[in-house]
Design a protein around this nucleic acid. Structure first.
Lengths: 269, 269
DNA sequence: AAGTGGTCTAGACCACCTG
DNA sequence: AGGTGGTCTAGACCACTTA
C-alpha cells in the first residue's frame, strides 16, 4: 500500500533535479513537455489507481489530507490534482462528503454521451430494443479504429432506441471481444440502466471520453424499414469512438438518428 | 479608477456578514446560490470591466499583483478568478507575458466555432462568397430566438463557404440591427480574417458561447442549386444561437452543410 | 463534534519572456 | 535584471454533511 515518495517537500533542495519522478528522456525529446509539475505527477498516480480499479466507480477515494500524507505533499497540491481529474469527469467532488469515482450508472448523467433532445422538450427516456448480438471478426475499418488487428474477435450489437413507441435511433456497436467476454443478448436485455453503466460494473470498462464524426446521409432500404421511414430519408449519422484510460479505444458506435422530432444538441465555448 | 473594497482581508471579522458584496436577497431566494466566494465576486468585477471594454480584445489586462492590490485581496484569489475566466475562454494566460483578452481574430482559434473538417484531413481554409446582405424586419421565429420584438430591425446575410472551389456550406445569418449599424456588403467583402473577428473590432460585439441544434434534412431546390447538389440530397442543418456577455443572444445562424467530403467533429468529455 | 471539501492568505521559489 | 504567470507550502477558517 505504501506509495513511492515523489520528492522531498521543498523543490529547491539541491541534490535531485526539479523533476525526480519524470523518467529522464533517452535523448532529445522533440515535443514532450520538458517540465511536469508535482500536482500533475500526483494526478498521474491517482489516475493509475483509478485505472487499476483500486477505487470502484461510485465509491469515495481517500480524503485530500490522506492522499497528501500518502504522497508526502501538501493538501493544496493534491487538491490541484483532484481539480483537474474532476474537470476531466473522472472524479466528482461533494462538499462535506468526499471525492467519488465518477460513474455512468447515475441517473443525472445518464445521457452524458447521448445528445439527442426531443423538439418538444419532453422526457428523454427511450425504450431500448436489441436487434442483434453476435461475436464475429473485426472488419478492417472497424479494426483500424479500435486499434486491433483485422479479424480479431469483436462483439457486434445492433439496437433501436424508441421514443414513445416510435423508432428514433439505430445503433451499431462494435466492442473488442477480449474485454467483453461474457456479453450476451440475455445479459444486455436483463440489465437495467445505461449500457455504459453495465460496461463499468460487469466488465470493468469505463468510457472517459469520445470523439464523434457527424454527417447527414440518406437512409438505405433496410435502415428506412427499421426506422419506419421512406428510403432516402435524411438521417443524422453519428460515428462515435469511445476511449478508456490511456486513450485506448474500446467502443465504436455508429448511430443513425431520425431528426424529424429530435435534434442533436451541442454547446460551443 | 479606485475600485470598491470588497471586504476586509479576513472573512472571520465579526461585524459584516460573510458576503458583504452580495446584495441581500429581498426575501426568500428559491434557487439562487446562497453563498458567493470572494474569487467569484472578483470574477464578476473583471467580467464587468471586459464587458465595458476597459481592456480590448487581444490586449493584456493588468498583472495579477496589480489586480490583487486594486481589489485588496491576495494574489491567489485573483488567480482563481482569472483561472475561471480562462476556462470560460474569456481570457488567455501566457506565462511570462501576461493575461490577455481572448479574441476571435487570431489564426489559431479561427475555427473555434466551425467544427467542419475535411475527410482527407487537408486544409480547413475556405473561400467565402457573400450572397446577400440586407436590412429587414425580424420574422417572428428569428425575433423569438434573438429576444427582440417581431418586426425589429435586423441584418440578414447569406453566404457560401467553398473548399477548393466546391461549395460546402450555405449560411444564413441574422443579427440585431441596432448592434450592427454600419454593416454593409462592401465592408464584409473587404474584411480579411474571420467574421467574428470583424464583429469584435468593428462593432464591439464579442461572441462568448453558442448553442447548436443539429439535424439532417433534404435539400430543397434553391439550396441544392447553390450547393451544386441534387434536390433532396441529405444536408446537415446547424442552427446556432450565439451569446455575448450576460447571456444576451446576438446572432442566429442557420447553416446547411454538405457532408459528402466533410464531417462535423465533436468531442465528448 | 468531527470529518470533508472549499476559501483565503502570505511567502518562497520556479519557469518563461523581454529588455 | 526585472516582470509575469506557475507551483508549492503552511496555516487558518468557512460551508456542508453525518453522526
Amino acid at each position: 500500500m505504501a506509495q513511492s515518495v515523489l520528492q522531498s517537500g521543498v523543490m529547491a533542495s539541491i541534490a535531485p533535479p526539479p523533476n525526480s519522478l519524470v523518467p529522464a528522456a533517452d535523448a532529445v525529446e522533440p515535443a514532450g513537455p520538458a517540465f511536469s509539475p508535482l500536482y500533475r505527477q500526483i494526478k498521474g498516480l491517482i489516475t493509475r489507481e483509478l485505472q487499476a480499479g483500486a477505487w470502484k466507480p461510485g465509491e469515495s477515494i481517500p480524503s485530500e489530507l490522506d492522499l497528501a500524507a500518502r504522497f508526502k505533499v501538501s493538501q493544496g497540491t493534491v487538491r490541484k490534482a483532484i481539480d483537474e481529474l474532476a474537470a476531466d469527469n473522472l472524479l466528482v467532488r461533494r462538499q462535506g462528503k468526499g471525492t467519488f469515482v465518477a460513474t455512468h450508472a447515475e441517473q443525472q448523467i445518464q445521457y452524458r454521451f447521448l445528445r439527442l433532445m426531443p423538439d418538444d422538450g419532453g422526457a428523454r427516456d427511450m425504450e431500448r430494443r436489441l436487434l442483434d448480438c453476435r461475436r464475429t471478426r473485426a472488419p478492417s475499418d472497424v479494426a483500424r479504429m479500435l486499434e486491433c488487428k483485422s479479424g480479431d474477435a469483436v462483439v457486434q450489437l445492433r439496437r433501436l432506441l424508441l421514443a414513445a413507441t416510435r423508432p428514433v435511433v439505430l445503433d451499431e456497436i462494435w466492442l473488442p471481444g477480449h474485454l467483453f467476454k461474457g456479453l450476451t443478448a440475455e445479459r444486455l436485455a436483463d440489465y437495467k440502466g445505461p449500457m455504459y453503466g453495465m460496461f463499468e460494473t460487469e466488465f470493468g470498462v469505463r468510457m472517459i471520453r469520445a470523439e464523434e464524426k457527424i454527417r447527414a446521409l440518406a437512409a438505405d432500404r433496410p435502415t428506412a424499414e427499421l426506422l419506419g421511414l421512406a428510403p432516402g430519408a435524411p438521417l443524422l449519422s453519428v460515428e462515435r469512438l469511445s476511449f478508456t484510460y490511456g486513450d485506448k479505444p474500446v467502443e465504436l458506435r455508429r448511430g443513425l438518428y431520425d431528426t424529424t422530432r429530435h435534434f442533436y444538441r451541442n454547446e460551443l465555448n
